[in-house]
Design a protein around this nucleic acid. Structure first.
Lengths: 200, 200
DNA sequence: TTACTTTTGCTAACACTGTTAACTAAAATA
DNA sequence: TATTTTAGTTAACAGTGTTAGCAAAAGTAA
């Protein structure tokens, strides 16, 4: 009775072709432009067929999100075992993480919900400069009064903003209804750590 | 000839009511659910009227993005002048930034293009745990071999991830076509700074 | 007041999106 | 061969952003 097996195999083939077509679309046009109709077109089946394999569009994206996390974890594991010292491992993992994000941009955007709409927006916003100026000037002053007054404050500004934005966006993602007390502790620790690093 | 003035005033009134209706929609249902039709409904005008005041939907969101950056900059300025020491200012600004993000969630999401689609997604992803485990264990080992082996490695993990994610998402937002050499320098500085802070 | 021009706002449509109900045709089973 | 199951279809619903074309109102000039 190989019929059932063949049917499962065929079903699996369609499923795979859906994912393949979807991923091709994501890679070429960005995940914003992925549509069920385009997938259906690409696999040469009608639209409802896709819903026999995935509950909805979100489920297809979820598949890629999982794949992305798996790939990232694999890469990190690979890199980790190439070093013995934990501190060196930590450094290598960080670089691997960063490389992964830019080498697999589409994965990363899906994994962390980076909607590109703001990308085009944010670069034409004069109002952002005010914020930037306040931050940079404060860092500049802090550095000038520090043991290493020659430190690159532009560099430090980016670190500062990244820590803050990273904290916020990850915490926002995790907890639907506002930050927890633990989140606040993390903030305090991160900020005090950064400032200490400025004051050597 | 106050006619022209009155016309400008009336036009401005409609424009304001569009923004008001749009913002109300964003606040109550999230910016993902904002639609031109809903705005038109709310202001009791037909759809094309909105396009007499804004080039497209994006332009309306851009307005809020600007507003958000202005508000954030104002808050930061307020907080800054309440302290004398630059290092203290830096700390206060950081807290203000964080508070702003969660108190004005909708603004922040618009400003930094945080698409919520991944929010629901990311919390049901087992694959994420592998990545988390690698990171945490490495940090744990680093801390154990450090002068302060009692440090909270869960806390440090969050800082680590936040720095990385913050760097990536901001750099991705700024440079459409991959990171620059300067971005890589920022990464190196931030990572080495973090690791140094672990090793006291 | 009348005739003309400009502005304003509307209806209706186009081209998309995700999703699903209802049906047909093919395949497997009895 | 007749029946049941399953696969795949068409067509539609309910949305989305955006725009062309037209009617009505408002302002201007004679």
């Amino acid at each position: 009775m190989g019929i059932a097996e063949r049917r499962i195999r065929q079903k699996e083939e369609i499923r795979a072709s859906i994912l393949e077509a979807a991923w091709h679309q994501v890679l070429t046009e960005g995940w914003q432009s992925l549509s069920i109709r385009k997938i259906a077109d690409a696999i040469e089946y009608s639209i409802p067929v896709i819903y026999n394999h995935f509950e909805n569009k979100e489920a297809i994206l979820l598949e890629f999100t999982k794949e992305g996390f798996q790939k990232l974890a694999d890469t990190m594991q690979e890199v980790k075992i190439q070093h013995i010292e934990p501190a060196e491992q930590l450094e290598a993992i960080a670089y691997a993480y960063w490389d992964f994000a830019f080498e697999h941009k589409e994965y990363y955007q899906l994994m962390f919900g980076l909607g590109i709409p703001a990308c085009e927006r944010v670069n034409q916003i004069a109002e952002m400069k005010t914020m930037t100026t306040i931050m940079i000037s404060t860092i500049e002053e802090t550095i000038k009064a520090s043991p290493d007054p020659e430190a690159d404050f532009f560099l430090k500004y980016h670190t500062y903003l990244s820590i803050l934005h990273g904290l916020v966006s990850i915490q926002m993602m995790r907890n639907e209804g506002g930050p927890t007390e633990g989140d606040r502790r993390i903030l305090k620790d991160a900020v005090s750590g950064f400032i200490k690093s400025l004051l050597v």
